[in-house]
Computed example of a mutant assay.
Amino acid sequence: MLGAAEDQARMMSRPVGLDAMRVCLPVLALAAAIGAALPATAATVSLNARLEAASSVQVNQVPASGAALVGRVQQFRNGDSLISLGDGEGQPVVLTLCKGKAHLNLEASWPGAPAAKTPEEKQMRAYGMSMAVMGGMAMVQGITGDALALPAEGQTSTAQRETSWAYGKELYAVAITHAAGGEIRVKLTKTENTTRTPPSGSDDTVSTDGDKAARLAELDPVGTSRELAIAAAPMAESVPDTMSLKGWMSASGKGGATVGAAREASGDCAR
């Protein structure tokens, strides 16, 4: 046994010949190539934290049929926030100064928004449009969850999510894109509504076929999508004081012709 061990030790201590090196080098090169080709491990980040720190979040909501709704939420270092509708900068709808009272653009509208004549109706219309934007954002958050598996920059990852409704499941495809420059896109697409309960019987007073049909009609149709585009750019300091608020209404009744005047009148930025 000792002699065999000594022979093995001598073999291991011998210098590697050229033939052996010619075999090893391609193997090492292949291993390196395979390692480089493997996708980078996704980092887990907080979606809620990214949204809270974002200078801008665009909310794209595309129904299975009909017009899309494009909203944008801008946030500023001093606590200002601005909700707009439409492509690009969009049409401003709701402004909050220094996390204070809201200011509503009474002239803002959108295809499909209710007609409004009185100031109260216009106020509710603006509020409803802003809630449509924020509700779309909240739905994506609720379905994807807070723990976001973020792929490497320039890559897209996919996952499946499901939620329960009264008679089954809603199924969604989630695509997470980490764009060059740091922008994050989270897209949620409805893929299926499942119904797991059997048809109701004649003595069933709760889970009736009519109730199931009514509940199903309340769900988003298959094909509906919502996407959040979370900007990577840093927040600006504040909404410019020169921005006009002509046609706006302050929830506190203390508005102004410009943002600067509204700041002074409301006192929200003097706390």
Rank of each mutant, 00 (worst) to 15 (best):
R271H: 12
A102M: 07
V133I: 04
S244Y: 15
G90P: 00
K117I: 03
G71L: 08
A4M: 04
V186I: 12
T191G: 00
D80C: 15
M131A: 11
M124A: 11
A159R: 11
E162T: 15
N48C: 01
W110R: 03
V27K: 04
T156R: 11
L188H: 03
L69S: 02
S225V: 08
M1D: 07
L18V: 15
M235N: 12
V16R: 14
A68G: 12
A132K: 12
A40L: 07
S207R: 13
V259L: 10
R196D: 15
K99Y: 05
T205D: 14
A36N: 02
R196Q: 09
A262P: 10
G88E: 08
K99C: 10
G154S: 13
V23W: 14
G3V: 02
V62L: 08
A37E: 00
L188D: 04
Q58F: 00
R22G: 07
V239R: 02
R72L: 00
M139K: 11
I83H: 00
V239K: 02
Q61V: 09
D211F: 08
L95G: 07
T224I: 02
S238N: 14
G145P: 02
T191R: 02
P63T: 10
A149M: 11
Q91G: 05
K187M: 08
W110K: 03
T177P: 00
T191F: 00
L69F: 11
P39V: 04
